[in-house]
Design a protein around this nucleic acid. Structure first.
Length: 563
RNA sequence: UGCCUGGUGGUGUAAUUGGUAGCACGCAUGACUCUGAAUCAUGUAGUCGGGGUUCAAGUCCCUGCCGGGCAACCA
């Protein structure tokens, strides 16, 4: 039973779903539920958007409603088709399909007419002051603003000016259409907020059709209303916009969409703001939006995250109005949970250490049977080649091993998984005193991994046959940032100085069992004892496969060592 | 010093709307184990403070404290 279920298995309702359920029960909008996911196409979607996607599409599903995908494309200077394409791909990848696809830019004509309506009603006016003058008149949180000298322009003059703004007769910034509300309002947002600005810029969809563009506040709620969105769900920082959201809808007399807010996702050790992510991409600190260290959906996908894991994670963290910080391990555990059930097991050695089995006949080899998944018998078994020369993991050997070290050490016996028990007899070092090779003997009677005499070993190691192994590159990842909470970094400090310079470790001399040679990108695999991996289709070449480690396995030994 | 909003174990959350503070993750211990994984069992720790109403307060009232957001011609 999960935390958000009752003993009857019924879903507990979060703050937003509770409102929806109440509205449906009360017969509001005849019980109709319409939501929307409204990204601005100015960047790639990240795990925080996944939370919103799961919420909006999830609610529609659960309440028999509909959910649209709408691009909030009202700022042409920041937006691009590259982003609208990737956003659609990512939403679909998560497993959701929108009922209708819309663009705020499709509403530009309607929005323009509505702006004219407000002018005619005396609820909007053209301000011809400079941005600086307007800012100076806004007042502060404790002091009221002052009225613009243009505030009492006649309807005719406003209409004329606004038409000329549209017609392109003015330069950027020369005029501004503002809502006429109250310069003394306690809600700063209501101090005659801007509705339309002049921007002679090429829009990725409308081209040069427009040189005036509506502001968020005069586009978002109106778009919601046009789509008859019943529940307009957004994050908490839009809370202060709600009075304005309602004001426009009321003045226009259009469909009464309502806004509800929830807390955005913050994850430890990473960045979530599109601005900062863009900075990393442009600054070359990462390989692109889909760098496996990025919290973007494409990055997580390339890292090996599954949609199931991401959706389970979103389910897990819940929806509240509390701005918390979610530990990255919650995300990682969601992945482990999903992959443990589905990923087949293979053996691969990341940092090879050669072992020669001195009593194994030279020039010979054999095949041993290994199970593909302990969690799923139907996954069957495969044959793994074994020979006289093997590779094991460097960290699985210790010359002066403490008692708690269950792995290989001089004189100690361990099991090679699915193969034989071996005992280390000699250690070969180079001039620098580093261990470069191990000599060992094997017990033929333990073939398959069990001793007929019932003798036990504490450790079981993964291994590959030197002769048969394939070479591979493996990339290991760590947190993007060294600090847990990036928002705690003072503004005068460069947040990028807190980036983890060791977030990527590339291992170029890894040896994998031969069955990994033609592995599908997108199919998760567990390298036993090391973690879950996925083939990186972008980086893999004909000569050399490249695997990304998605996440490590839980590691009690590593924890013990830390103490 | 304005407005909006929030505060439940370390973290994320739940509490039938006033009635036994529960779940998950983490952590610890143990069982099992051919992955120091998985699984299972046990344990760990919490209602921001102070008043008040009440038979009964995480929940209602007052007050204090702390946090987040808002003063872009961004979204």
């Amino acid at each position: 039973m999960s935390a958000d279920e009752t003993s009857e298995g019924e879903k507990k309702l979060d703050v937003i779903r509770q409102v929806v359920a109440d509205d449906v029960a009360a017969g509001k909008h005849d019980g109709r539920v319409q939501t929307r996911f409204p990204p601005e196409p100015n960047g790639y979607l990240h795990i925080g958007h996944a939370k919103s996607i799961c919420l909006n599409f999830g609610i529609a599903e659960e309440f028999g409603g509909r959910c649209n995908l709408r691009f909030d494309d009202t700022n042409p200077t920041k937006e691009d088709v590259e982003y609208v394409d990737s956003i659609q791909e990512d939403v679909r990848w998560l497993g959701f399909e929108w009922d209708e696809l819309h663009f705020a830019s499709d509403y530009f004509e309607q929005l323009y007419e509505w702006a004219c309506q407000l002018i005619r009603q005396g609820d909007a006016y053209v301000d011809s002051q400079s941005p600086e003058e307007i800012r100076a008149q806004r007042g502060t949180s404790s002091q009221p603003g002052t009225n613009s000298p243009d505030r009492e322009r006649s309807v005719e003059e406003n209409l004329d000016l606004f038409a000329k703004m549209r017609a392109g007769e003015f330069a950027d910034g020369e005029h501004l259409l503002r809502a006429k509300i109250d310069m003394a309002s306690k809600h700063l947002i209501l101090r005659d907020p801007p509705m339309y600005r002049i921007r002679h810029a090429e829009h990725h969809r409308t081209g040069s059709d427009w040189c005036i563009y509506p502001m968020y506040d005069f586009a978002h709620g109106q778009s919601d209303s046009l789509e008859e969105v019943t529940h307009s769900i957004c994050t908490l920082e839009f809370e202060t916009h709600k009075p304005l959201y309602d004001w426009f809808i009321e003045k226009l007399g259009i469909f009464p969409s309502k806004q509800y807010e929830f807390a955005r996702l913050s994850l430890t050790y990473t960045v979530m703001s599109k601005r900062k992510l863009l900075e990393l991409v442009e600054g070359g600190q990462v390989d692109g939006w889909d760098d496996p260290r990025m919290p973007t959906l494409c990055g997580l996908r390339r890292r090996g995250y599954t949609r199931e894991a991401i959706r389970a994670f979103c389910d897990d963290i819940g929806i509240t109005r509390y701005n918390g910080m979610t530990d990255m391990v919650v995300l990682e555990n969601a992945l482990r949970g999903d992959l443990n059930k589905r990923a087949e097991r293979r053996m691969g050695v990341l940092r090879p250490l050669k072992v020669v089995i001195t009593n194994y006949p030279e020039g010979e080899s054999e095949e041993l049977e290994a199970v593909n998944s302990p969690e799923d018998e139907s996954a069957g078994t495969r044959m793994v080649p074994f020979g006289r020369e093997l590779f094991i993991e460097q960290e699985d050997f210790m010359e002066d091993a403490p008692k708690k070290f269950f792995r290989l050490a001089p004189g100690r016996e361990v099991r090679l998984r699915y193969a034989y028990f071996i005992t280390c007899t000699d250690v070969i070092k180079n001039d620098a005193g580093e261990v470069v090779e191990l000599l060992a003997t094997y017990d033929p009677a333990t073939k398959g991994g069990d001793a007929p005499d019932g003798r036990k070993v504490k450790g079981t190691l993964h291994w590959v046959s030197a002769e048969h192994a394939i070479n591979a590159e493996v990339r290991l990842y760590d947190h993007l940032c060294k600090v847990e909470d990036l928002s705690k970094i003072p503004d005068d400090e460069d947040w990028k100085s807190h980036l983890n310079e060791n977030s990527l470790e590339t291992l170029t001399d890894c040896r994998l069992e031969p069955s990994l040679a033609d592995f599908d990108a997108g199919t998760p695999v567990q390298f036993e004892r090391l973690g879950y991996f996925t083939l990186d289709a972008n980086a893999t070449t004909a000569e050399k496969p490249v695997f990304n480690r998605s996440v490590t396995l839980r590691d009690a030994w590593a924890k013990m060592q830390k103490r």
